[in-house]
Design a protein around this nucleic acid. Structure first.
Length: 274
DNA sequence: AGACGTACCTGACCGC
DNA sequence: TGCGGTCAGGTACGTC
């Protein structure tokens, strides 16, 4: 489901609903995720308080009292659902009961997501976090930095931007949208992006992500925010999922096309993106 | 090192 | 109605 804007939206929602509440009950109904949930998860989390919530790339970091951190990834289909104590539904894999009577349920049909636990001092060494690249909405992410990371890379820029070790948080939707806004072909080799293209790319990524966060992320299929509200950035897609539709830039002869790169659909306008 | 393919899992949708 | 095929917001791992 989620890329950076969706995870950031969820982070902000959770910061309103679960902060400073104690975890009074933990039910782990399944442990077989991409990375199995540690058997000691429930006992190590029980009784702790959620003190703050961070995000790193597409990972949510729930900081708990006593220096522990829950690391959550939502994979393709994961959700965090806040509600009243109810009986679990299909694919509710982890259920936290909080001190104000609400519950937070981790629901993930495909089980590509993960829930992990570590100590705060070990966070930066955690295998999921250690190799993550730059946060695209920080000052560190700029032309100089990106140019160095693209140096000598022959792979298509689409694939390189999807690589979490380069830029943390971009996924299929926002890479497609950013490349369209920058006017860059998704098939262009990374090393061939220089000068004005590089400037446009950095600016486009920042703009697309910022606007998507302001819109509460994108709601495809059944994705909802923790609060149950829908994000609405999907109405702003210029290319994603728009194969065959006219390009918004312009001449009626321009149409959005779809190609497959590394087994993922890429949507783009071959006239506007070079 | 880096590029590429495949596996993981469930559900929705489409055509027959 | 059912059945098979395809596709889906992601990442890890093996191979060349």
């Amino acid at each position: 489901m989620p890329e950076l804007p969706e995870v950031e939206t969820i982070r902000r929602g959770l910061s309103k609903s679960i902060l400073n509440k104690a975890i009074e009950g933990v039910v782990v109904r399944r442990t077989d995720f991409r990375r199995p949930i540690t058997t000691s998860f429930a006992e190590r989390v029980l009784g702790k308080m959620v003190t703050s919530i961070d995000r790193r790339g597409k990972y949510l970091l729930l900081n708990l009292s006593e220096e522990s951190v829950v690391i959550i990834h939502l994979g393709m289909s994961g959700r965090l659902v806040i509600g009243k104590e109810e009986k679990p539904e299909r694919h509710d894999h982890v259920i936290l009961s909080l001190s104000d009577g609400t519950t937070m349920k981790f629901n993930d049909p495909r089980r590509f997501g993960s829930v992990d636990l570590t100590r705060r001092r070990d966070l930066m060494e955690h295998p999921a976090i250690r190799l993550l690249g730059v946060e695209p909405l920080t000052k560190e992410f700029n032309e100089c930095w990106l140019r160095h990371r693209l140096l000598g890379r022959k792979a298509p820029i689409k694939n390189l931007l999807m690589d979490q070790r380069i830029v943390a948080g971009l996924g299929n939707i926002y890479v497609c949208e950013s490349l369209f806004l920058a006017g860059i072909s998704p098939r262009r080799a990374g090393a061939n992006i220089k000068g004005v293209r590089l400037e446009r790319l950095v600016a486009a990524i920042r703009k697309v992500l910022t606007e998507a966060i302001e819109a509460g992320g994108s709601s495809l299929r059944d994705y909802v925010q923790a609060s149950g509200e829908l994000g609405y950035f999907q109405h702003s897609f210029k290319v994603y999922n728009r194969e065959g539709q006219p390009c918004i830039n312009g001449p009626l002869t321009h149409y959005i096309g779809r190609v497959v790169q590394s087994n993922r659909s890429t949507f783009f306008c071959s006239s506007c993106q070079r």
